[in-house]
Nucleic acid binder design. Sequence first.
DNA 1: GTTATACCTACTAAATATATAGGTTTAATG
DNA 2: CATTAAACCTATATATTTAGTAGGTATAAC
Lengths: 148, 148
Amino acid sequence: MMKLSTKGRYGVRAMIELALNYGGKPLLLKDIAVRQQISEGYLEHILPLIKKEGLVGAIRGANGGYFLTKPPIEITLGEIIYASEGRLAIVDCVANADICERNKECVARDMWCEINDKITAILDSFTLQDIVERELKKSDHLAAVYYI
Amino acid sequence: MMKLSTKGRYGVRAMIELALNYGGKPLLLKDIAVRQQISEGYLEHILPLIKKEGLVGAIRGANGGYFLTKPPIEITLGEIIYASEGRLAIVDCVANADICERNKECVARDMWCEINDKITAILDSFTLQDIVERELKKSDHLAAVYYI
DNA sequence: GTTATACCTACTAAATATATAGGTTTAATG
DNA sequence: CATTAAACCTATATATTTAGTAGGTATAAC
């Protein structure tokens, strides 16, 4: 139903946590899982996917952990989702024309491709930094409200 | 993976068929299924969903069939997808804030809502007529090419 | 060499998607 | 008014995907 799976959502949430920690010591997968209330074992499947796309790096062994490989402003939501759950394709034939022999004359496919491009553009218009800034702004605001 | 299910795709394809037939006699579900290569039994689940949203009407009994209730230009892709597979919600909390008690302070949710609105707007920017016009234009063009 | 960490593989359970089957209701028609 | 053609409805079955668990391996610090 055009829904992001938990893989994508967890990936985004883990990245928010890493962005909040950007510049600091590597963050333990375990800590990310606890802070974001994600099953640790499941997150062990997701972070490596994001690492494979180069958005995060990891240090193994004691004092290890995960970190962003570039500033949050250079990482888009689209990239995170792509890394976490594979190519964003509203319908399969967008990514894989061959699966349908009608791909040459299919107007539906042309349309889906256009739509896909537009959705991708939307997702790429949000950077991790945008999200974190919202986070900080909102928690400031909430704090202010609570103290009235 | 942010994919439309076959329900949505089949729904759209069935509607294209009905649009091509707009103004004519009611079209049999069976014929739609054959022309669009959709399992007849499965389509029997989908068309009623679209009917419930009022996009199509049906006549029962002999000489019955399905038809559009309004001109193709007044029917958007978003409406068809909504009718076929329910509310478009990139993540559940967009449609249903209550499922998460953090909904008030969650910046992620704010963002998902924005994205959802934008995607909906994209889908609503395509009408059935647009699609059919493309279809006709393309088949003209293909015919021309084949006859060279 | 012990400990803390990322990493890897296989398995499992649950949910969802994709149908199929069989019967019921409605309306036209000879 | 019986037959037929169609939409409509409900239950069941199968396949696929999602989400998670378990258990072990590799690596690095101390």
